[in-house]
């Protein structure tokens, strides 16, 4: 990761409002963050938190009420910026009358690729996303998961520097999610910058360098994943005492050693020990529950 480079995404005090009958509804409220080249960022939050809206502003689909957004140091929606990015929208039903191959010819062509380049790229890409041999199938015959795979293929067709993926694994079965994780890891290894939203928090844990959590339009957590996942100073000991299986939790290494000695001296049999960690899901639930009831 090259942190000294200029950010690919720069969001400063972003405010987005939707017009509604009862007045303006604030969907994003004073959000700021940056994404550096080579980073993989998980953008998480409950439904309606403002994730998709923020992404739409990044792409120039929506316009902020205030604040600034830069993509490759350009205004969102700038053609030059869009040439360098790939975008996967949330749940899209691709043209049912087109074949998968034709759709990729369309998107690749729009991205500026030549026909010759696409003839080489498309079969490889279909294989990469698990759709080998399905290029000539009409999209109307594709399942939701297959549509999502086509969506990923169109996003990465021109090997973009930056990927913005909204609800990455939406509609995918466990095998699909596994395949997708491999694709993402390959892209990450190749130095691509990935900014994605997902409700699959285990996926975020596995793939991301950093996580940004948003709730009710505000950033409520921004942290490196390694920081969140580091072991807690908390231990669990599974043991048998008088034929009964038991578990004891202790905090601190000294207490852990003392407890172990105590169990053994009292005739107990230690079965195993664990270092406790917290999952991203634990943080997510704790933070979101903590914010429940607070206004936007």
């Amino acid at each position: 990761m090259n942190n000294s480079s200029a950010p690919l995404i720069e969001v400063r005090n972003l405010v987005v409002e939707y017009a509604s009958r009862g007045g303006a509804m604030r969907a994003v409220n004073d959000v700021s963050f940056t994404v550096l080249p080579g980073e993989c960022i998980g953008f998480i939050g409950p439904n309606g938190a403002g994730k998709s809206t923020t992404m739409k502003v990044l792409l120039g689909f929506m316009f902020p009420k205030s604040g600034s957004v830069k993509l490759f140091n350009r205004e969102p929606g700038a053609t030059e910026a869009r040439r360098r990015l790939g975008y996967l929208p949330e749940v899209t039903l691709y043209y049912p009358f087109m074949k998968a191959k034709e759709l990729l010819f369309l998107y690749g062509g729009l991205q500026g690729m030549t026909r010759t380049q696409l003839k080489v790229r498309i079969p490889k890409l279909l294989e990469e996303v698990g759709l080998a041999g399905r290029g000539d199938t009409l999209l109307k015959n594709f399942s939701k998961g297959m549509q999502q795979r086509v969506g990923i293929a169109q996003a990465i067709i021109a090997d973009p520097e930056l990927l913005i993926l909204d609800e990455l694994s939406s509609g995918l079965d466990p095998v699909g999610r596994h395949d997708l994780r491999d694709v993402m890891l390959e892209l990450k290894k190749a130095g691509r910058t990935i900014f994605f939203s997902s409700h699959e928090l285990s996926e975020v844990e596995t793939l991301c360098d950093r996580v940004i959590m948003i709730n009710k339009g505000r950033v409520v957590l921004e942290s490196p994943v390694a920081e969140l996942m580091k072991p807690l100073n908390l231990f669990e000991i599974d043991f048998e005492q008088d034929g009964q299986p038991q578990t004891r939790s202790v905090s601190g290494a000294e207490k852990f050693n003392a407890t172990l000695a105590e169990i053994i001296s009292s005739g107990g049999r230690v079965i195993g020990t664990r270092t406790a960690t917290r999952s991203l899901e634990d943080y997510f639930i704790e933070i979101i529950r903590g914010h429940e009831g607070s206004g936007r």
Binding site: E90, T92, L93, Y107, G151
Partner: peptide, 14 residues
């Protein structure tokens, strides 16, 4: 309706 406008306009197309 089908949301195909998003991937289209995310490409360098005015």
């Amino acid at each position: 309706e089908s949301r195909t406008i998003y991937p289209l306009l995310a490409k360098p197309v005015s």
